[in-house]
Design a protein around this nucleic acid. Structure first.
Lengths: 255, 255
DNA sequence: GTTTTTGTTCGCACTTTGCGAACGCCTATA
DNA sequence: TATAGGCGTTCGCAAAGTGCGAACAAAAAC
């Protein structure tokens, strides 16, 4: 229900709000920007950008330092509220921290949300200022370990709807390969990404499913290709992830 | 600069954006709500609310399950991006986790932002679904330990500007009491909140200051009054916090 | 000292918001 | 099974407010 929640095309929407969020996303990427810079980037006039920024500043969601604008820490409040409403977040947090500790790699909790995977939690030995790796970042479902773990436990028609919406095209060969891979994931409960999504970055994932065997999330461990290669050959990682995922899943289902 | 960043009164702003964020804040508090409920709460028509929700859904920031709308995990991305742009967040995280571990209480990093304190980080043994205690939540500066630690290292004229903006009124006695307390904080580098802000909840804080001796944040430890009372009498907590704050401060200043 | 680039303000045309009313669906109750 | 009241959704339209452009101010670059 949640994973493929898209409004119908042509549904009426508020363009002013869209503009506003384009601004926020621009600020997210640029870590501090001025009015002209943002206006150029988004093809808006300076006055429009200025008015929007002033509004956000008044609301306390962005901050102005000298002549540059930045996202405000207050924005975290919306995200953490969303996260705490996840039925399994509080129980997942500790096991994930432990998982990251024992593997000494990055552990994440991925959750499906309108056709993407979204990191609900991310913890590990990597100081990461890259926004696309932080909690809240969106990742493609069909090219990541966590995403594929989720897709493997998602009904076909929903899967197709997602691909259609996200404009993911497969030729028939790619389609077969994916189908085989998903079957394999269902057999082993383990999904892999060997540098598919980010070069030299390996990731292993185990799905979390609800009582109907539909994916509600995935637990992942990821790290640099060479280091992960070694750890994987010792074959302990998938089991550790599996235990973490299972304990979260059990506590979820016993509610 | 950041702490008292307010747009001039009467500055032009975009009312549509304000409405949209009122909606998001309503969703934040209600953990899932329907169109009618939100329309009533915000005194808007159902059609207006519906259009805004559809827009946010299209952008992927909220999610519709059946007939209720919830905040989406994607919102986390904006907040984590803001946080990672803090010059001392990455270095502060680990010491704070350790502080929470050794004290076995909640440890936080509070940062000043337009007249409030904002939790940039919060970690501890309390499963907290209350939004006003999560990372990103805003707390009053003059009634909390973290806030007072920050105020103690903020120039008087900025302090007054904040109080004016946040509509905090003091009679002359209260003003004197606060002044004495802030002086005491400067002498000891330690601020206390003994149930002032939340009943039966004690908090201890140490400021983080920049090279000009202006506050850029505060490290706090907090917990239930009785338990904290005991721990404080053994007098180890303020020192632990102090060490954590100092190590963050040193690394910040050596950049 | 001059030129360029930046942020900010203002008034206005036109896009768009937000409203109200109507519709259809589902649930509760008789 | 009928019916009433609740809900979310759709639509057209008037009023409102967005977004533009031009002009100004202030700072930075040359």
């Amino acid at each position: 229900m949640k994973i493929d929640d898209f409004p119908e095309e042509g549904a009426r929407s508020v363009t002013t709000v869209e503009t506003n969020f384009r601004l926020l996303e621009a600020l997210r990427k640029s870590e501090g920007a001025g009015v002209t810079e943002l206006a150029d980037e988004l093809s808006l006039t300076k006055s429009t950008v200025h008015k929007h920024l002033t509004t956000l500043r008044k609301l306390g969601y962005i901050v102005k330092e000298g002549t540059t604008y930045r996202l405000g820490i207050s924005l975290l409040g919306l995200g953490t509220a969303a996260r705490s409403q996840l039925p399994f977040y509080e129980t997942a947090k500790e096991p994930l921290e432990k998982l990251s500790d024992t593997t000494d790699e990055v552990a994440t909790l991925v959750v499906p949300e309108h056709g993407y995977g979204v990191y609900a939690f991310r913890e590990g030995p990597v100081d990461d200022r890259k926004t696309h790796r932080q909690a809240g970042a969106r990742i493609p479902l069909h090219r990541t370990a966590g995403g594929k773990a989720i897709l493997a436990y998602t009904p076909t028609e929903i899967r197709d709807r997602i691909f259609r919406h996200r404009d993911v095209k497969f030729d028939s060969e790619e389609r077969d390969t994916l189908a085989r891979e998903l079957q394999n994931i269902r057999d082993t409960r383990t999904a892999y990404d060997r540098g598919e999504y980010i070069d030299d970055w390996y990731c292993v994932a185990v799905p979390i499913t609800d009582a109907d065997r539909n994916a509600v999330g995935a637990v992942t461990v990821s790290g640099p290709a060479d280091r992960m290669e070694g750890k994987l050959s010792r074959n302990d990682i998938p089991n550790l992830i599996g235990h973490t995922a299972n304990s979260i899943q059990n506590r979820l289902r016993s509610n």
